[in-house]
Nucleic acid binder design. Structure first.
Length: 290
DNA sequence: ATTGAGTCCTGAAGGC
DNA sequence: TGCCTTCAGGACTCAA
């Protein structure tokens, strides 16, 4: 389920358990995920201490004490569990009891295990260094953070001007905004009352300047992401998951997954519709999104 | 340079 | 119960 808010929620849940800890043992249970693991993957992590855990787009970046950076992407189905002593001190489930899709287990000096599980294996892990992070092939050409200061009406308009793609594909393009996924693009466009099939160029004037649509879209993108992070954060805080899984919280979406159901805009009589754009499901209200 | 289609992989859900 | 099809929160690679 991971989009940016899920990754950020997982990062926040993992941070207090992982940062400052020495990785005592690495259990790598297969040779590849989406890509092969780098050479000596386990060896390079073993006995290293995690100094910080950051997020860039949908990537988690664990900085280690020797300058190594562990890059983790969860793909479509990646999940991370904290097994052992949870944040409230209770043991959550038996260690050593591995699932078929538990691909990597990091055993920490504290005795806690960080378990990476990914049935579809669209996720990945790689190693680089802090110095080389900016030129890493996966990170070098991705766009701005949607929650960062770079997302401005001017930026959106500059990127959108002259494009022939539709709004939905434009916002999903990680080279423009890095971290928006299918759900939150649908939700942000709903909040902005913009039809996903509209041309991306509708965010700019003829001279490439931002217009009212670009200005309106930005706070909706930020709000929908921040709302989801806030919802996830409370779940982590309460630590309600019996198995220690992170990022399983429920969201209430306005359009995503609601095809055939009534639009939630007050007084709107529309029905949420599902279409396909760029091979991905799009959900929108044809009445109030124009 | 952009854009769209195909691709990786497993599991859940729904139809018959 | 079982077999089949469709769909899934991502994003790389390649062809046009």
């Amino acid at each position: 389920m991971p989009e940016l808010p899920e990754v950020e929620t997982i990062r926040r849940g993992l941070e207090p358990v992982l940062v400052g800890q020495r990785i005592q043992r690495v259990e790598q249970r297969r040779a590849d995920l989406r890509f092969p693991f780098p050479e000596n993957f386990g060896k390079r992590l073993t006995n290293r201490t995690v100094v910080s855990l950051q997020r860039r787009a949908k990537y988690m970046l664990a900085h280690l004490d020797d300058g190594t950076v562990l890059i983790i992407h969860l793909g479509m189905s990646g999940r991370i569990s904290i097994v052992g002593q949870g944040q409230l001190g209770q043991f959550t489930h038996n260690q050593g009891n591995r699932d078929t899709h538990d691909h990597v287990v990091l055993r920490l000096a504290s005795g806690t295990e960080i378990v990476y599980n990914d049935p579809r294996r669209f996720g990945l892990m790689d190693l680089t260094t802090a110095a080389a992070l900016g030129t890493h092939p996966l990170l070098a050409s991705i766009g701005i953070e949607p929650l960062g200061p770079g997302l401005t009406p001017e930026y959106l308009a500059r990127q959108a001007a002259g494009r022939r793609s539709d709004l939905k594909s434009f916002l999903l393009d990680q080279r423009i905004i890095a971290g928006l996924g299918n759900i939150y693009v649908c939700e942000a466009l709903f909040r902005t009352r913009l039809k996903p099939s509209r041309a991306a160029a509708c965010l700019a004037t003829a001279t490439g300047k931002p217009n009212a649509r670009a200005a309106a879209l930005i706070p909706h993108i930020k709000d929908v992401l921040n709302d989801a992070i806030a919802a996830g954060g409370s779940t982590i805080k309460d630590y309600t998951q019996a198995d220690g899984s992170l990022g399983y919280f429920q969201h209430s979406f306005h359009v995503y997954g609601r095809a055939g159901e009534p639009c939630l805009t007050p007084a709107c009589r529309g029905m949420v519709r599902r279409t396909v754009q760029a091979g991905r499901s799009t959900f929108f209200c044809p009445v109030c999104q124009r």
